[in-house]
Design a protein around this nucleic acid. Structure first.
Lengths: 155, 155
DNA sequence: AAAAATATGTTGCATTTACAACAATATTAT
DNA sequence: ATAATATTGTTGTAAATGCAACATATTTTT
């Protein structure tokens, strides 16, 4: 029986990381070229906030897989640009900083979404059917969920 | 007809990025805990080099989606640890720095692979069949290839 | 032949990141 | 009640990253 040598570069982990790198690079270049005045991670966080109005910083950090420090820094930037508001509130009898997207924030999201709607949700050069994409997303979520159990989140 | 509001967080791009974040975080924690003396990106680059003996720096940079500067830095580190050797050679009548993995490099790869073989290539808690994983990988590669055409690689 | 463009690698720098340490407050244990 | 622990946010810092600029050398254009 021949020994089959396995390489990390043949694993699904590698494929996911490589694909994410390309997404990140393309996004950075496009955001820069189109002068959106936010970086991709700010856009992404803003979209999460728009889906979770009133969320506090730590809970947001858990959703976007960043630590509290960097989550706070992104929020400083979004707030300085007027795209979110932050306010002190209580959660489990503790003072926390909650946030919500502003009108300007919605406009910014829209501006970017309109520009990318086609590439994000349709017309993938007819390479993928709706079902293909759905299957990919389901598989990725399952994969991610199973990995998360190994993750020691110090958040 | 109701307007369906689309969010970036519902896109496949987001799923890929989130999953890659978890992979990266888990890998960093494990590599750190197990004292492998290389960081995950070094391990990954080393595996690529082991599959492309004699590759030059720029060609490696293209494969791992890093710029020449950081590719060189990773190679400095791998070389300092004795895991690769670099040598000057010619390619298209130009002087370039080519590289190859060393015996110590193979040992390092093996040490890490043995430790992770199970989590990398089997026993995913029976969540995924061989076919499921294969389908995911094929889909990701197709997705990545179609995105790469948008990428302006300044490498 | 001279000038411009390309290829390859390196250095410098600003940005992003994860972690450690800290401050402030609330909960739990002793 | 007091001490220990947990929650939330901020500041500091070292490592990783992408880009611009540079140095060399070769190819292409004029």
């Amino acid at each position: 029986m021949k020994k089959v040598i396995k390489h990390y570069t043949e694993s699904i982990h590698y494929d996911i990381e490589q694909t994410a790198k390309v997404i990140k690079l393309v996004a950075a270049q496009l955001f820069n070229k189109l002068n959106f005045d936010v970086v991709p991670e700010e856009y992404s966080a803003l979209d999460v906030i728009s889906c979770h109005s009133g969320i506090c910083q730590r809970d947001l950090a858990k959703l976007i897989f960043k630590d509290r420090a960097n989550t706070g820094r992104i929020l400083n930037s979004l707030e300085a640009k007027g795209l979110i508001t932050r306010f002190v509130a209580t959660k489990n009898n503790r003072l926390v900083r909650k946030m919500a997207i502003t009108e300007a924030g919605y406009k910014k999201l829209n501006q970017i979404n309109v520009r990318f709607e086609k590439s994000l949700f349709e017309n993938r050069e007819d390479l993928f059917s709706e079902e293909d994409v759905e299957n990919l997303q389901v598989g990725l979520k399952k994969f991610r969920t199973s990995l998360e159990r190994l993750l020691e989140l110090k958040i």
